[in-house]
C-alpha cells in the first residue's frame, strides 16, 4: 500500500518525536487501512498516545504523516479525536448536548450560522448512542461510560471519516466497554476508519481487524490475528510486567 492509496487512511513514514530531549518515537513507518478498526497496543510510555497526537499534528515531529491522502491541516474536519479522560475538564459547566454540538461545529465551521442544524445533528447523534434523555444534563454528572458515549456522539455529529480514540475504555466497566465497542463496530460498518489505543489484548484479538504494536517505534502492524502472537507481543512488552497480559 502506498501513501497516496485511497485504501490507506493514515500513512506514516520515518516518524520521530522527541519531548524535552527524550526520543519517544523513532523511525516509525505504518499504513492504517481505510474502513478498518485498528488497535494501537503497547506498554505504558511506549509512545501510543504520541503516535495519535502526531497524526493530529498536535506536536512537532520529523518524518511524514499523511491523513486521508493529504496533510492533516487539509482534513481536520473529517478527523475526530477523543483524548484521554484525564485531558478533559469534567467539571466545566457544559451540557451533554453542547459536547455533541462541538462535533457538528468542527465540520460546519466554528463561526458559521447554522446553529439549528448543528443542534439537530447533535441531538440525532445523542439518540444514536442512547443519550437523548440526558442531552440537557451537565457532562460532569454522567458516569464514565456515559461520558464516553457523549464523545462518541460528538464523533458521530462530526461525521468523521477517521476516528482516533486514546484509551477510551480506561476506568469503564466491561458491559459499557462492550457497548462502546459495538458502537465503534457500527461506525466501521458505515465506512469510518477507527483507531483505538487499547490495553486489553483479548479484545484486540476478538474485536479489531488490525493491530499496531508500539514500543518506541512500530514493532509490528497488520491483521490482528497475525500480529497478536506470543512472539510479537514478547518483543513489544519484553519481560516487563505487562507481558503477563500478552499471554492472557
Amino acid at each position: 500500500m502506498t501513501a497516496g492509496d485511497p485504501a490507506v487512511a493514515v500513512a506514516i513514514d520515518s516518524l520521530a518525536v522527541a519531548y524535552g530531549g527524550r526520543t519517544v518515537l523513532r523511525d516509525a513507518t505504518l499504513r492504517i487501512r481505510a474502513g478498518a478498526m485498528t488497535a494501537v497496543v503497547g506498554p505504558n510510555g511506549a509512545g501510543k498516545s504520541t503516535l495519535l497526537r502526531a497524526v493530529m499534528g498536535m506536536l512537532p515531529f520529523t518524518g511524514s504523516v499523511r491523513v486521508l491522502g493529504g496533510p492533516i491541516d487539509a482534513c481536520r474536519a473529517r478527523v475526530a479525536y477523543v483524548p484521554q479522560r484525564a485531558a478533559v475538564d469534567w467539571d466545566f459547566p457544559i451540557t451533554v448536548r453542547q459536547v455533541a454540538e462541538m462535533g457538528a461545529h468542527a465540520r460546519l465551521g466554528w463561526f458559521g450560522l447554522r446553529l439549528g442544524r448543528a443542534r439537530r445533528e447533535a441531538l440525532e447523534a445523542l439518540a444514536d448512542v442512547g443519550l437523548a434523555d440526558l442531552a440537557a444534563r451537565p457532562i460532569g454528572e454522567l458516569s464514565g461510560g456515559q461520558q464516553q458515549r457523549a464523545f462518541m456522539a460528538r464523533a458521530l455529529a462530526q461525521r468523521a471519516d477517521l476516528v482516533l480514540l486514546d484509551e477510551p475504555f480506561a476506568s469503564i466497566d466491561a458491559t459499557t466497554e462492550h457497548d462502546l465497542l459495538a458502537l465503534l463496530s457500527g461506525l466501521r460498518h458505515r465506512g469510518t476508519t477507527v483507531v483505538v489505543v487499547h490495553h486489553d489484548l483479548e479484545t484486540v484479538r476478538e474485536r479489531f481487524d488490525d493491530a499496531v504494536l508500539v514500543r518506541g517505534t512500530v514493532i509490528a502492524h497488520g491483521a490482528a490475528r497475525d500480529v497478536m502472537t506470543a512472539a510479537w507481543l514478547a518483543r513489544t512488552y519484553g519481560d516487563a510486567p505487562h507481558s503477563g497480559k500478552a499471554t492472557a
Binding site: A77, I94, V99, M102, H105, W110, I139
Partner: peptide, 19 residues
C-alpha cells in the same frame, strides 16, 4: 463562543479540530 467553549472543555479535541 463555540471555539472558546470547545477549547475550555476539551483542549485536545479543540486543537485537533482547528478551534
Amino acid at each position: 463562543w463555540r471555539p472558546i467553549l470547545a477549547s475550555s472543555f476539551d483542549r485536545g479535541f479543540a486543537r485537533a479540530a482547528g478551534a
